[in-house]
Design a protein around this nucleic acid. Structure first.
Length: 821
DNA sequence: CGGATCGAC
DNA sequence: CTATGTCGATCCG
């Protein structure tokens, strides 16, 4: 979204006020200045439960920072130097892998929801408008932003900031329709384009650019939509920037036609011809979007996704920007760019890095060694990628969905009965959605937010995948019950509840398991599969933990305790109890336990059906059995070409069934709820190890259908996705666009690395050229390495003897003070 | 695996 | 009165 520029405020520590989107506002005409906005927000927010929770969260972040700073103090120069060398080695590799050959475009509709509403209701034009509700705004138009009205701000606060504000309720169906219109255009330039929500998309136009060179001019000609027949010479008007339907588009710094463009002369009445460059393509796209929807978009063009995204932010609204495919240009772009502008760097990371004196991307690069010692591998590698301007150069297909959830906010609910009812309702909704996609998951997570805005999640993983309301609720209600009990006799006072299901079978698992499960369930004899273990009886596994908690007693106790505590509550509670607690469960559990034991003890089955070839196999020993299955699998699945991945899920190259069952699944049995135990262990025995080939290869060979479609295939799909799922909510934090134009020149040149003082004379081996370097100071050694490193990774080397001067002053990073101000 | 957190839209 | 909903990733225990 364009309208949610992150707040990357370098002048003060970020805190609640900033998160509300305050920034300098120099549009003097109408609107409020920063201080007034802060004051109003403060007055309306101070003392609220929400505010108190924000304070608490800020404190936690401060503690993290403190820990990090302590860690930093302990780092020695030697450690840092070593890290520097290691990281720089990596820098070289990364630099070599730099790929500038793709052209990625990021399209971002300007103030999307607000723009749509304004388009459809002319009365709203010229007025401050926000889309959302009194409790939460999704976006606002630029007029409203001058009053400090921002995305992610509650409407009631926005109203105080801007009493004339018109708040329009969300209408996702409408946005979905418009979004679809835009996508229809985009798909012509990249059929595999990747939509991000309703109002953004990435395109890889590399191929389009090639083809386009061969196109006849007419394929690049587009006509103005003219409602007004008197306007006989639209293109003339257009080139003068006077096209009425496009008040802004061509007044920016990216005019449709370059003055040098030879196409300019060739434009004929009511039409315009676009060139063949990437810029021209993107102008064409934006032109077509505006012609079709009357809405403007901003765009970024760059060699990778990350850069394209940051680029589209540059000239919004209604502008575009390109980073040429040259390393130099990339680094220039990043040089003074605040890290907060980088996708993936949020409020917290920004604050932590700021504590280290890092605000811009070049500072991020300078501190790479330190960062590698203070952050996790994933984090600092990511930082390094960012500071080098590296990113994905192709649009990856969406993988399979990993979870599905639903949650609801409401006014306080504090009776158990209401809570259980609500929970069931959520489960019902979720089950419906799950079934639409034919998904079943093994983990159910309950999310609760109490009236103090504290969030808790509680999860439980069961053996057999769940998908129906009843199945999900069976798990969720226990989680909820446990929470209710945990604070009894106080009632749970919640303002939000959510239910999530995750742990889906992956596509390949599904296919494989479907076969095997059906074969397993065909008759009772498959149970014998479990008993074919020589030596030890399965009983050992099933009763592994029984010394401390005899089977069943754990759950019985838990239930009894809960019921006991509930008897002490109001009469209402007893209703809830009967409604929601399955008294039969304990009895069931005993029953099922018996069955299992019987099976374990009986010895009647030594025949099983191979889950792969479906042939009955008789076997007396485990190895033989496994061997058969392994052979069978290798034979059917990975004929000749297939190679079994060595590091996937299983520890071995072969597909062993039983060992994993022994080691892992039995524990799960113990953990599981009694009423879920029955009938689940059979299928569980083949879960988790159904494949050990890499998913990629498996897909290539096995899958007859590609990944989940990214683009909805029809209107109802779109409507559903769009309305139910992809509701876009703007970033919490925004920065005034004016900021983009406020380019402060840094007086100091950035240097490619950090330097250290070293007194010792030493001989160091340059990690780049491998030659020994006599150095009297690390400065000179660093310089050598830098020079050696990359022939100008950074254009000039200026010496910097210490960490950057901008250091963290913890006393400044208070939070309360900011609020109080 | 479970829980908290972060970040994006 | 009144501070979202959904998803993925990551870190830590």
């Amino acid at each position: 979204m364009d309208d949610m520029e992150k707040v990357g405020n370098s002048s003060c520590n970020d805190g609640f006020l900033l998160r509300m989107g305050l920034n300098d506002n120099k549009a003097g005409m109408q609107g409020l200045d920063k201080e007034k906005i802060n004051k109003i927000i403060m007055e309306t927010t101070k003392g609220s439960r929400f505010y108190e929770n924000e304070l608490k969260k800020d404190q936690q972040v401060n503690q993290r920072i403190e820990k990090m700073m302590q860690l930093k103090e302990k780092i020695t120069k030697q450690q840092l130097l070593k890290a520097q060398l290691q990281v720089d080695k990596l820098v070289i590799e990364l630099e070599q892998s730099r790929n500038l050959s793709s052209t990625i475009v990021h399209i971002d509709m300007d103030a999307f929801y607000a723009a749509v509403e304004m388009r459809d209701c002319p009365e709203l034009k010229e007025k401050p408008v926000a889309v959302g509700s009194m409790s939460m705004l999704s976006t606002s138009n630029y007029h409203a932003r001058r009053f400090g009205v921002r995305a992610a701000m509650p409407g009631f606060i926005a109203k105080k900031l801007c009493p004339h504000l018109t708040i329009v309720p969300l209408n996702f169906e409408k946005y979905g329709k418009v979004s679809k219109e835009v996508r229809e255009i985009l798909t012509e330039y990249d059929p595999n384009f990747m939509p991000m929500g309703l109002d953004e998309a990435y395109l890889n136009i590399t191929e389009h650019l090639e083809e386009r060179l061969r196109w006849p001019e007419d394929k690049r000609r587009f006509f103005f939509k003219t409602e007004n027949k008197d306007d006989t010479n639209m293109s003339a008007k257009f080139n003068e920037g006077g096209y009425s339907a496009s008040p802004v588009l061509f007044e920016d710094n990216t005019p449709l036609m370059d003055d040098h463009s030879e196409q300019r002369d060739r434009s004929v009445e009511n039409s315009v011809i676009f060139g063949t460059s990437a810029e021209e393509v993107v102008k064409e796209i934006r032109f077509r979007i505006e012609q079709k929807t009357q809405l403007t978009a901003s765009a970024g063009i760059a060699p990778n996704i990350m850069l394209a995204k940051m680029c589209s932010d540059r000239n919004k609204p209604n502008g575009q920007c390109r980073i040429p495919p040259e390393r130099r240009a990339v680094l220039d772009f990043l040089k003074d760019l605040p890290i907060r502008k980088v996708p993936g760097i949020g409020k917290v990371t920004e604050k932590m890095l700021k504590a280290l004196g890092i605000v811009t991307c070049s500072e991020l690069y300078q501190q790479r060694a330190l960062l590698s010692l203070l952050f996790s591998e994933a984090s600092w590698r990511n930082f390094l990628d960012i500071s080098l301007g590296l990113g994905s150069t192709h649009l990856e297909k969406d993988g399979e969905r990993k979870s599905m959830s639903t949650e609801r906010t409401f006014s306080e609910i504090n009776t158990a009965e209401d809570q259980y009812n609500l929970c069931q309702e959520l489960c019902r909704d979720l089950a419906q959605e799950l079934q639409k996609e034919g998904l079943k998951g093994k983990t159910v997570t309950l999310k609760l937010k109490n009236v103090n805005f504290e969030v808790k999640t509680r999860a439980s993983t069961v053996l057999s995948s769940v998908s129906t309301e009843e199945e999900i609720f069976a798990v969720a209600k226990d989680l909820l019950g446990t929470e209710i009990d945990s604070i009894a006799p106080h009632p749970l006072r919640i303002r939000l509840m959510g239910v999530r299901v995750s742990g889906f079978l992956s596509e390949e698992e599904k296919k494989y398991r479907q076969k095997s499960i059906t074969s397993f369930l065909k008759s009772g004899k498959e149970i014998g599969f479990l008993r074919l273990q020589p030596g030890k009886s399965n009983q050992d596994y099933f009763t592994k933990n029984s010394e401390t908690s005899p089977r069943g007693s754990f759950f019985d106790k838990k239930r009894a305790a809960r019921q006991l505590s509930r008897e002490n509550l109001s009469p209402n509670e007893t209703v809830g109890k009967q409604l929601f607690h399955d008294r039969k469960s304990s009895a069931n559990f005993v029953e099922e336990t018996k069955k299992v034991t019987e099976l374990q003890n009986s010895n009647m089955c030594k025949i099983f059906t191979c889950p792969v070839c479906f042939e009955e196999q008789s076997s007396n020993n485990l190895e033989e059995l496994n061997r058969h299955i392994d052979e069978c699998l290798s034979g059917t699945l990975f004929k000749d070409t297939m190679e079994i991945s060595k590091n996937d899920h299983s520890r071995e190259n072969t597909l062993n069934f039983l060992p994993q069952f022994k080691n892992e699944n039995v524990d799960e049995c113990q953990k599981n709820k009694p009423d879920q135990l029955a009938g689940t262990y059979q299928s569980a025995s083949i879960s988790d190890n159904s494949t050990s080939i890499s998913t990629e290869k498996f897909n290539q060979v096995i899958s007859d259908k590609p990944h989940r479609e990214r683009q909805p295939s029809n209107l109802s799909d779109i409507a559903r996705n769009v309305c139910m799922k992809q509701c876009l909510f703007p970033k919490r934090i925004s920065q005034d666009n004016e900021d983009h134009f406020e380019k402060t020149e840094h007086a100091e040149e950035t240097s490619s690395s950090c330097f250290f003082e070293a007194k010792e004379d030493s001989v160091l081996v340059c990690p780049v050229c491998n030659s020994e370097q006599k150095t009297t100071s690390l400065v000179s050694f660093n310089r050598h390495v830098d020079v050696c490193l990359n022939k100008g990774l950074i254009k000039e080397l200026t010496e910097k003897k210490d960490f950057p001067s901008r250091t963290c002053n913890m006393e400044n990073s208070n939070t309360v003070g900011e609020y109080a101000h």
